[in-house]
C-alpha cells in the first residue's frame, strides 16, 4: 500500500469529508446495535428524537454543547498553529477551580463585576497552564503531546486533593465537592425552567471572536503561517516561537472557559465528575469542524446531540449509552482517515 499526493479538493469535496465520516460512523454503530439485539433504525431514530425531538431535548443538547464549543475552539486554535494541545481537560478543571475559589464568597461583589473578574482569572489560569508545555516545546523541544496529556492527570489529582482538603464543602456530608457558588457568581439561565444558561451565548460569541482573530488579524495570520510552514514563516520574519506562546495563551484560556461555564452556569459547584472528558471530546469537535471556529459550533452541537440522544435512547431500548462514546470515537477516526484521503490517493498493490 502506498500513498500518492493528490491535488487540492474542491469545496464540495471538503464538505463531503465530514459527512462521509459521519455516514461511516452510523454504519459501524449499526453493527454494534445489531449485536446488542436492537434495530439500528429505531435506535438512531430514538437518538435523534432524544437529541432534538422536543424543546427540552434541544435545550439539553445545547447545554451539553456549551463546554464542547469552548474546548473545541481551544483545540482548533492550537492545532491550527500545530501546537498539539491534548490538555484541554486540565485547563478546563483549572478554570473551574478558579471559579470556585473566587465565586464562593471570597469576593463580595455584584454580578456585573464578579463574573467578568472570574472569567478573566479563569482564562489566565488556563492560559498559564498551557504556557508551561509551550515553553518546554520551544526552548527544549519537549513534545507537547506528552506534557499536556500528562498534565491532565496531574491536574485532576490536584483537584481531587483540593476537594478532599481546602475546597471541601463542610456541609457536603463528606462528599468530595466544593461549596456552592454565591448567587452573584452564577450565570443566569436563558429560559426559566430549562438548564440552558448564558454560557452558551458566551460560547457562540467566543466562536465568532476566534473566527475573526483567525481570519482578520495579523495574529491569526501568524498562527496559520507558523502552523502551515514554520520554516517558511521564520524566513519571512514571523516570530514563530512567540506566536506559539500567544496561541498557547489563547487556547488554554478558551478551555478554561469551559470549566467556568460548567460551574457557574450549570452545576453551581465543583466535583470530580464536572467533565466527562469534554477536553478530549473537544479534539473530536475540532477535527470534525476541520479546525474552523464557526464549524466548531456545528460539530459541538452534533457531538452533544449524540451524547444526549444516546442517554435517552438507552433508557427506552436497553442498548447501553456507551454507544455514544463508540460513535464519537469512530467519528474522530473516520474523520482523520477522511482528511488523509483528501490529501493522498491510496494505491493497493
Amino acid at each position: 500500500m502506498r500513498l500518492e499526493p493528490k491535488p487540492a479538493p474542491s469545496l464540495v469535496m471538503l464538505l463531503l469529508y465530514p459527512v462521509g465520516a459521519i455516514v461511516f460512523t452510523l454504519v459501524f454503530a449499526s453493527l454494534l446495535v445489531l449485536l446488542a439485539g436492537a434495530s439500528p433504525f429505531s435506535v438512531f431514530f430514538l437518538v435523534a428524537k432524544g437529541a432534538a425531538g422536543s424543546q427540552f431535548a434541544l435545550f439539553e443538547t445545547l447545554t451539553r454543547a456549551t463546554p464542547l464549543i469552548f474546548t473545541g475552539l481551544a483545540v482548533a486554535v492550537a492545532f491550527r498553529a500545530k501546537l498539539w494541545n491534548i490538555g484541554a481537560e486540565a485547563q478546563l478543571y483549572i478554570g473551574a477551580v478558579v471559579t470556585v475559589v473566587l465565586g464562593t464568597g471570597a469576593l463580595p461583589l455584584p454580578s456585573i463585576l464578579l463574573i467578568p473578574l472570574i472569567v478573566i482569572a479563569a482564562m489566565t489560569a488556563g492560559a498559564l497552564l498551557l504556557l508551561g508545555p509551550a515553553l518546554l516545546k520551544t526552548r527544549f523541544g519537549v513534545d507537547e503531546v506528552v506534557t499536556t496529556l500528562l498534565l491532565n492527570f496531574i491536574v485532576l489529582l490536584f483537584v481531587s486533593m483540593l476537594l478532599e482538603g481546602v475546597l471541601k464543602d463542610p456541609m457536603g456530608l463528606g462528599w468530595p465537592q466544593s461549596q456552592k457558588l454565591i448567587a452573584e457568581a452564577r450565570l443566569p439561565r436563558i429560559v426559566t425552567g430549562r438548564r440552558l444558561h448564558c454560557g452558551f451565548g458566551m460560547a457562540l460569541v467566543s466562536a465568532v471572536i476566534v473566527w475573526v482573530i483567525m481570519k482578520k488579524t495579523t495574529l491569526g495570520y501568524e498562527m496559520r503561517a507558523a502552523g502551515n510552514n514554520a520554516e517558511g514563516a521564520r524566513f519571512v520574519g514571523i516570530p514563530v516561537n512567540r506566536v506559539l506562546m500567544k496561541t498557547a495563551l489563547l487556547s488554554g484560556g478558551l478551555a478554561a472557559l469551559a470549566g467556568f461555564s460548567e460551574v457557574s452556569g450549570l452545576k453551581g459547584n465543583l466535583t470530580l465528575d464536572l467533565s466527562p472528558g469534554y477536553g478530549y471530546s473537544g479534539i473530536v469537535v475540532a477535527m470534525l469542524a476541520m479546525l474552523n471556529p464557526l464549524g466548531v459550533v456545528v460539530s459541538a452541537i452534533f457531538v452533544a446531540g449524540i451524547f444526549v440522544g444516546a442517554d435517552a435512547m438507552s433508557r427506552s431500548t436497553g442498548v447501553p449509552s456507551y454507544i455514544a462514546d463508540v460513535m464519537v470515537a469512530t467519528a474522530l477516526l473516520s474523520m482523520v482517515v477522511a482528511i488523509l484521503l483528501a490529501r493522498f490517493r491510496v494505491r493497493w498493490r
Binding site: Y221, R224, A225, N228, N229, E231, G232, A233, F235, V236, I238
Partner: peptide
C-alpha cells in the same frame, strides 16, 4: 519549503 507557505493563498503569501 522556505519561500512560500504552501497551503496559504497567493494573497496571503505575497504579504508575508
Amino acid at each position: 519549503a522556505v519561500g512560500t507557505i504552501g497551503d496559504m493563498s497567493i494573497t496571503e503569501n505575497v504579504i508575508a
